[in-house]
């Protein structure tokens, strides 16, 4: 009887979705290694791995920095800062990521070149710097910039929620000790805010990996673009997109599990 109950408890604790996913992954990998055409597709798509990771990491790092600034501005005591940051966040969140991408690539980049030329006009006339042209910005750069600007808005809202989650008593205590407003923010509020939203921030990285597939519409050679081109030229749609999906799942599922582990750890720490 106890054996049965123990078995039931173990069965309840098993993450069956993960077992299924790992099983499917193993089957996919096994098939791929056994099948010559899968091996070729794996090799081809793997060449986009670096671009996907590179675009995701660079945009994530930049959007963390920009998002932190926007989040701080959003919870600032200064009304103009608050309004400006809210304006930006609402604007960007109201647009599909794909539209932001097209906009930055075909409107933003030429405009940026114009602005830089305007700023550096004396230097350019003197011949010290060459005039910028829109094509000086690679499509990978434009795509990264678009993801950065889009995700900064989401991340700013996460930081704001984190800042608001910190008990007001902590701020009062810091003020009562004579700390300035910026010292209070930096030394008391932010460390606790960031800790509170760490899992949410990590989830944004998973999301940005998935959204990095959007850069394929600009012809950037990431996993999706290489797969798309390969499938179109060989008509092996089924095999190619299996491989593409496999690559994304390897990254996203493992990262999601890390986020969960982090969440559990933080919860345990807070309960102590």
């Amino acid at each position: 009887m106890t054996n049965g109950r123990r078995a039931a408890r173990i069965a309840a604790g098993v993450p069956w979705w993960l077992v299924l996913l790992v099983g499917l992954g193993a089957i996919a990998l096994g098939t791929a290694l056994a099948d010559a055409s899968y091996r070729v597709i794996f090799g081809a798509v793997a060449r986009g791995f670096g671009v996907t990771i590179g675009v995701a990491l660079a945009s994530y790092a930049a959007s963390l920095a920009l998002g932190l600034l926007l989040g701080l501005a959003r919870s600032s005591r200064l009304r103009p800062l608050r309004e400006a940051s809210t304006f930006y966040i609402e604007l960007v969140r109201g647009l599909p990521m794909l539209v932001i991408l097209y906009y930055i690539a075909f409107v933003g980049a030429p405009a940026l070149a114009e602005v830089l030329n305007g700023l550096l006009a004396p230097l350019i006339r003197a011949g010290a710097v060459k005039a910028f042209q829109a094509r000086d910005f690679s499509f990978a750069t434009r795509a990264g910039l678009a993801l950065t600007l889009g995700y900064a808005a989401f991340i700013a809202e996460i930081f704001r929620a984190g800042i608001e989650s910190v008990d007001k008593g902590q701020i009062e205590a810091a003020h009562a000790l004579g700390l300035s407003h910026s010292q209070t923010m930096l030394r008391v509020v932010l460390p606790q805010a960031v800790k509170n939203v760490l899992p949410a921030l990590a989830n944004e990285f998973v999301a940005i990996i998935k959204d990095s597939a959007l850069v394929s519409v600009l012809g950037v050679q990431d996993i999706t673009q290489i797969g798309k081109v390969y499938a179109a030229s060989t008509f092996k749609f089924f095999e190619t997109y299996n491989v593409v999906a496999f690559f994304y799942l390897c990254m996203t599922v493992s990262l999601s599990m890390l986020v969960r582990a982090l969440e559990r750890r933080l919860k345990r720490e807070n309960a102590r």
Partner: peptide, 25 residues
């Protein structure tokens, strides 16, 4: 000031709580 709900900085050790203001201010 001493508060009803203590308001100790929860991300710092007791000693860091006590030394923060002397160091910063």
């Amino acid at each position: 000031m001493v508060f009803q709900s203590f308001n100790l900085f929860s991300h710092m050790s007791v000693l860091d709580n006590v030394t923060l203001a002397p160091r910063l201010v």
